[in-house]
Write a protein that binds this DNA or RNA. Structure first.
Length: 790
DNA sequence: GCTAGGTTAATTTTT
DNA sequence: TTAACCTAGC
């Protein structure tokens, strides 16, 4: 966040940028190779433009070319363009690509960044308008929750029944919708044990006192300012002559309002997005924003990017067929010039472990090139799951067979305990009044300051109206905290004073950081720790200090970290990637595996329960995102049994599997596996046994009284589906064909004797494989002729 | 203040 | 099943 705050700095940069590009005589180089649609999107500079960019259609290319076009044609200087993204990664990428297009780095694009970083920058200039100082701190989720916890306790609410995390979610929801406490409607304010609105107000008040914001506030405050201060708004309407928005389908109400306010004047706003890839509804994104664009901006030019450069025709057709089941789309048809390629593969497995085993073998085979394709390195292969707990089966399996993998997502560097602790020390050095930071480290490392001592500090601080650090100093002076704790606190207070002095004095912030970690005893704490992770933590601390080098001072670093929580370490080694579907958005791989396509898991039961059809459609978009990540080979799989929270459950293939167009799917016969039952993937399509083919009718079945009765009758069975209503599944009645003592045959386990039945599950003592629990559909009655008892 | 054992809940996640 | 979180008890 350092560098370009000075207006004239980017004025200068802008001049040199366009001038140089022009002088170099390649004013149109960035247009080379654009297809007609991309070109149209690039050249429609004036007025509202909606760029509907399907997966793999060269969206970033068009977007960056558009910026290059604005600059080179002299329509705008870098400082005139507001370009917002959701992630730092996207912003970085865009900067790089613009730089490449124009043949130089674009350090002069001061307003290209994430919604949050741009808003933070704006808010620092106008903080006083919402009662903050310009050096406010930005709290992360962890701080937010700790703060809320305090407020909940203070409000005499049972924190166990009403967890702070939940309140945080509610408040975030309000902020996403640009609702300040006074705007939360009566009924809604009654959320959270009837105290939601009140706690929200208290929380905002507390943030102001702490001179802090949370992430949601960055936008909320800016919307508030723009709405209440026409002069400020106008200033930025004039400054931002052109507005570009990436991933518009992911914007929430607050972001939408913010953009609309800024674009109101000239209406030069270009939004890029894909309604079919809207997968963040659960965190406030409004697909409606993109669906409504033409109404919001009458006369908008809508450009569709539909030529796909990523995937084979089968993959595209499968994805298109699937997404067609969603209602209320803007509509796009992806096409490609590429011909041929593999169909999407579909395979059913016995259980989750087997699925993992099979995928592991496939990956190895593909890497060796024994699948009729050129070898695909591990870096080119990915497994995309719906929920992160599904990763475990793969990790377990891959560790066993020694297949290198990397998990994308998960806890990030700056969210790690030791990093957050160290950061709290830095924060305290920069701002001694940062109470949250003080609280975090006051007894880390252990200083013998327990609840009681901390209460004394709190009380002293409140009575004197000072920060906790000052309160601690006073308490020490007064001798209110005795013994070991008192001495340790005295040292901490002295240290904090020293560090703050050092910050003010300037000097090397790297040396200071090292000194802080040293003098506080923090480094020593981990050195003394004998647990296996201690070494890694020390390593991380070193890395943290190293990261400081890129900044001029601690303040700059802290701002950076507050907003840029990613750290993608380069890892050159060949590894399979495992990640969630959400994390996969925007990525592509030659080979993609999509496991766990089962009712209840994907689409997620919870999603459907909570948001009904809306949730289901978002799940379907997630499936669409998954398939469209694949360039050459996409393999969808499901398991007939899966352990869910320790319980074995029978699983039904996902309804999304039914929705795949058959012509583009290759149903693999599981090699040497079971031969009967629904698990035999051939049955995955509703083609057999009188399936209902009509989609509308299928939806009807789902909502019909008959279906509901059916679901009820299924009783304890957690996942009933339309498929069952259609009789596609061997249900409880079929089970009665088997009784204890019957001889049965299983493709994998061979012959065995039924020892028990329970609903549609059988317990079978197999002659060779031992006792197994399984679905009746997976076995057939043994015929005397075949069955050779031993 | 720490640890062991019991209880509870269990998507998706960026900033 | 498991992992995180919290409460007793040392």
């Amino acid at each position: 966040m350092s560098g370009f705050d000075e207006d004239d700095a980017f004025e200068r940069a802008s001049l040199s940028l366009s001038a140089r590009a022009m002088a170099a005589g390649r004013p149109v180089a960035y247009l080379d190779g654009l297809n007609p649609a991309q070109r149209a999107a690039v050249e429609a500079l004036e007025g509202p433009v909606l760029m509907l960019a399907g997966a793999g259609t060269g969206k970033t290319r068009a977007l960056t070319a558009r910026i290059a076009h604005l600059l080179t044609t002299g329509h705008a200087r870098p400082g005139d363009i507001l370009a917002v993204t959701f992630t730092n990664k996207a912003a970085r990428e865009m900067k790089e690509r613009i730089g490449r297009l124009l043949g130089q780095t674009v350090e002069g694009m001061p307003w290209l960044g994430t919604f949050h970083s741009v808003c933070a920058k704006l808010l620092r200039r106008h903080a006083e308008l919402v009662g903050l100082k310009s050096n406010f701190t930005i709290l992360d989720t962890d701080d937010q929750i700790r703060l809320l916890k305090q407020l909940i306790v203070a409000a005499n609410i049972d924190e166990k029944r009403w967890p702070a995390r939940q309140l945080a979610g509610i408040i975030d929801g309000w902020k996403n919708r640009a609702l300040t406490p006074d705007r939360v409607r009566g009924g809604e304010a009654g959320a959270f044990n009837n105290r939601g609105g009140e706690l929200y107000a208290a929380y905002q008040e507390r943030l102001r006192t702490l001179n802090a914001t949370d992430f949601g506030d960055l936008l909320l405050h800016m919307v508030t300012i723009f709405q209440a201060q026409p002069d400020v708004l106008e200033q930025y309407q004039r400054r931002f002559k052109y507005i570009l928005v990436d991933e518009y389908q992911d914007t929430n109400v607050a972001q939408y309002l913010w953009l609309r306010l800024l674009a109101q004047g000239h209406r030069n706003i270009c939004c890029v997005g894909d309604d079919d890839q809207s997968i963040y509804g659960w965190r406030g994104a409004e697909v409606g924003n993109i669906l409504r664009f033409e109404k919001d901006f009458p006369g908008a030019k809508v450009v569709r990017l539909e030529q796909n450069y990523r995937s084979t025709e089968h993959i595209l057709a499968a994805a298109s067929g699937l997404i067609a089941a969603n209602a209320g789309r803007l509509g796009k048809t992806l096409w490609t010039e590429a011909r041929g390629g593999e169909k999407v593969r579909l395979i059913g497995h016995w259980d989750g472990e087997e699925e993992a085993r099979w995928i592991g073998e496939e990956i190895e085979a593909l890497a060796r090139g024994t699948r009729g394709m050129a070898p695909v390195g591990l870096n080119g292969q990915a497994i995309l799951v719906r929920a992160s707990h599904q990763m475990r089966a793969f990790e377990d399996r891959f560790l066993t067979i020694g297949l290198p993998y990397r998990v994308i997502g998960g806890p990030r560097f700056y969210e790690r305990l030791e990093i957050r602790d160290a950061m709290a020390y830095f924060r305290l050095a920069v701002s001694p009044e940062d109470d949250l930071a003080f609280e975090r480290i006051v007894n880390t490392p252990k200083r013998g300051l327990g609840d009681k001592a901390q209460q004394v500090i709190q009380l002293t601080a409140r009575q004197n109206g000072v920060s906790l650090l000052e309160g601690a100093a006073l308490a020490v002076q007064a001798g209110a905290i005795g013994g070991k704790g008192g001495a340790a606190l005295r040292e901490l207070v002295a240290g904090a004073g020293r560090w703050h002095q050092a910050v003010r004095a300037g000097g090397s912030h790297i040396e200071l950081a090292e000194a802080i970690l040293d003098e506080s005893g923090y480094t020593a704490m981990w050195q003394a720790d004998k647990t296996p992770e201690a070494a890694g933590r020390l390593e991380n601390l070193k890395e943290l200090v190293k990261a400081l080098e890129q900044f001029e001072n601690l303040q700059g670093f802290l701002e950076h970290v507050a907003l840029i929580m990613d750290n993608e370490s380069e890892d050159a080694a060949e590894k399979v990637s495992i990640m969630t579907l959400h994390a996969a958005k925007g990525l592509e791989f030659p080979v993609v595996f999509l496991p766990g396509w089962e009712e209840g898991l994907f689409p997620s039961q919870r999603s459907m329960d909570e948001t009904g059809l809306k949730g289901l459609e978002e799940e379907r978009r997630l499936a669409y995102v998954g398939i469209t990540r694949a360039e050459e080979l996409c393999t969808i799989s499901f398991a007939g049994n899966r352990r869910v929270y320790g319980q074995w459950q029978s699983q039904l293939p996902s309804r999304f599997i039914d929705e795949l167009p058959e012509a583009h799917v290759d149903v693999l016969t599981p090699p040497g596996l079971y031969g009967g039952g629904y698990g035999a993937a051939g049955m995955a399509f509703g083609a057999t046994r009188g399936g209902i083919e009509d989609r509308a009718m299928r939806a009807d079945v789902y909502n019909s009284p008959g279906w509901k009765r059916m679901a009820e009758r299924a009783g304890s069975r957690p996942m009933a589906s339309p498929r069952e209503a259609r009789g596609l599944v061997i249900d409880a009645e079929a089970v009665s064909a088997f009784a204890p003592g019957d001889r049965v045959f299983h493709q994998k386990f061979g012959y065995g004797t039924v020892t028990g039945t329970e609903g549609d599950k059988l317990t079978v003592a197999f002659d060779k494989a031992g006792e197994k629990k399984l679905l009746a559909g997976f076995v057939v009655a043994a015929t005397a002729a075949d069955d050779v008892p031993f």
